[in-house]
Nucleic acid binder design. Sequence first.
DNA 1: CTCATCCTCTTGC
DNA 2: GCAAGAGGATGAG
Length: 171
Amino acid sequence: MDIYYHYINFPLGYIFLAKKKEGLFISKFLNEKKLPKEYISEFIDLKSCKLKHIPELFSEEIKLFNAYFNHNKVDFSPIKIDLSIGSLWERRVWIETAKIPYGEVQTYKSIAEKLNSKGFRAVGKALSKNPLLIIIPCHRVIKTDKALGGFSAGIELKKYLLKLEGISINL
DNA sequence: CTCATCCTCTTGC
DNA sequence: GCAAGAGGATGAG
């Protein structure tokens, strides 16, 4: 199986992207450039795939991310994504999270309720494994406006993204 | 502070 | 395989 990857610059560092023919499946922040295989091996057995650095395949993603970081209301839904690395529950949580519009927030509990579940804590657990940061906007899921909850790439980044989208937080 | 809640991962058969 | 236990990006009291 072929896997294509590329890096995108953003104001606080880099974003690593990887896709296979089914769609994009990794979008993660990095502070310093790690090797692509270190990100991919988290999800896929490297022995079964070939990694290829082909920036031209990411023109759509580059365009949308640049617009997003320039304070535009970007809809990422045109990007074809592949969530097959997650469990059934994780995929349900991720898809529900992807429905939250730009500039709006939900709580862990409200996501659970939409899924007819009382497992609000399990929602947090699923989001901690979100492989597609920003595209699946897990930064829009908070506890309350006084307690944000966590963020896999660091709470400062979560604050930055909320502020970028014009969401006011009382801290 | 405690305890309820539920999905996932690990461990020990 | 299966079952029990631990532990989370939580929430209510």
